[in-house]
């Protein structure tokens, strides 16, 4: 059994019109963000349903960050506002289920805000490091380790 510290995974749902472009720009600018961030491109954060966040945690994510356009500048007018309400609902559900609601967060960035996005991603990584690996993941890992031994 390895005693090495478990690498956490943070899923970042990034809107193609802003945060995904900002992440791309961060690369061009040689800005570094934590290596445990897994970026997923979405057509708009308004496309994300509550179950996407729930499934991400169920399938082993330690944190989920939703990055949409700045309020008032959504390409589809109010997709990011819809996403905000869904994220808030999912946070409530996660808390009811016994998972820290801080593991899920929504942020707003523009396509030009590479530095701001990187700061948010670093903040999220720090939050997850403080909270530790998801208890779901730990149970899963333990079960796997037990079945191996």
């Amino acid at each position: 059994m390895s005693s090495a510290k478990k690498e956490t995974t943070i899923v970042a749902f990034c809107c193609i019109y802003c945060a995904y472009a900002a992440a791309d720009l961060a690369g061009s600018m040689r800005l570094q963000y934590p290596s445990n961030i897994r970026i997923l491109r979405t057509p708009c954060t308004g496309r994300l349903e509550v179950e996407y966040f729930m499934k991400a945690f169920e399938d082993g994510a330690d944190g989920v960050i939703v990055a949409g356009c700045e309020e008032g500048s959504c390409h589809f007018k109010e997709g990011n506002l819809v996403a905000k309400r869904r994220v808030n609902y999912a946070k409530k559900l996660l808390a009811e289920a016994g998972l820290e609601s801080d593991r899920l967060r929504m942020v707003n960035v523009s396509a030009a805000s590479a530095r701001k996005l990187v700061d948010y991603l670093k903040e999220m990584a720090a939050t997850i490091e403080k909270l530790g690996p998801s208890p779901l993941h730990t149970v899963k890992q333990l079960a796997r380790q037990e079945s191996k031994s």
Partner: peptide, 19 residues
Amino acid sequence: EREVSIIASALRIASRTQN
């Protein structure tokens, strides 16, 4: 169907967090 998926997911999470 959507709410079933969400509630089932939350129950599975609760089952694992609370053993």
